[in-house]
Simulated assay, not measured.
Amino acid sequence: MIWGKVIGALAGYLFLRIPGAILGALIGHWFDRGMAEDFTRKGGFGQFLFRAGTAAEDATFLYTLFAVMGHLAKAKGRVTERDIAQASALMDRLKLSGDARTEAQSAFREGKHDTFPLQQVVREFKQAFYGNRDVLQLFMEQLMALALNDGVLDKAEHEVLINVGKTLGFTKFQIDQWLMMQKAAFRFNQRQQQQRQGRTQNASRSADDVQDAYEILGVSAHQSDAEIKKAYRKLMAQHHPDKLASKGLPEEVMKQAQERAQDIQAAYETIKQKRGMR
């Protein structure tokens, strides 16, 4: 928090010029520290604040994610038990408990209301992260993964994703391309899981695996090895933990992004084996 120091310095300057500004900034610093300590004691999303210098971005990301998730679930007309279980599973993966979990549930319910101001909330989210496209893209990927959790994308869900994406500054073409990549990742992971459970034949690399691997990277089979490697490196750079940490994202959310990086790595290894790439 810095507003105590800013306001204190300005007020002090008006009365005593430079000496007053210094004194005001000092008093404001004590005020900021007191507010921060009080906020972290409150629990809820406040427990994510003031960690590693991230300010309020952590809480903003989590609130917006669960609120829009609730709106996405209601878009189909009725929130199902599967939708609720999916939200709870995400809270488990993010290790939300106590007040933090209660606030996530509240955000999810808020998003379900017919009067939920979707565009306003998304615009404020964009402003909170200064329009950083890596963060905004990660947010979209999180929503898409949630929408595709059952392997099916409802028309109403698609419209919400397009609406949110455009508000964040992305084109319909970009959003549909990311959806294609997410759908391919869903199919790819489903087959891998079935193979591990012995429910399907564990072939070296099936044609379906290879096709989905290309789609996960957003490339096609007719592209060169160099183009595929370039696409792979770009995607891995976007999902690198160190890079995401510098954007002010919660550690819990970065763990989810790492799962996406694992999908990208697995897809690239599949293509490398198929093509004999080094």
Rank of each mutant, 00 (worst) to 15 (best):
M1G: 12
V6W: 07
I7E: 04
G8E: 01
P19Y: 06
G28T: 03
H29Q: 12
W30R: 15
D38Y: 14
R41K: 15
G44F: 01
G44C: 05
F45N: 00
D58I: 00
T60A: 13
A67R: 05
M69W: 08
T80S: 15
A85E: 14
Q86S: 15
Q86V: 09
M91P: 13
K95G: 02
S97A: 12
E103A: 09
R109L: 12
T115Q: 09
R123N: 07
Q127K: 15
V135K: 06
F139T: 01
M140K: 08
Q142L: 13
Q142F: 08
D154H: 11
E157T: 04
E159W: 05
V160R: 03
T167W: 02
T167C: 10
F173K: 13
Q182M: 13
K183C: 08
Q192A: 14
Q197H: 10
G198T: 01
T200V: 14
D208S: 11
D208C: 06
V210L: 07
L217H: 05
V219L: 00
A221Q: 13
E227W: 00
R233M: 06
A237H: 08
A237R: 15
Q238Y: 04
Q238A: 11
P250V: 00
V253L: 10
Q258F: 03
Q262M: 08
A266G: 06
T270R: 03
K272E: 15
K272C: 15
K274D: 08
M277L: 15
M277N: 12
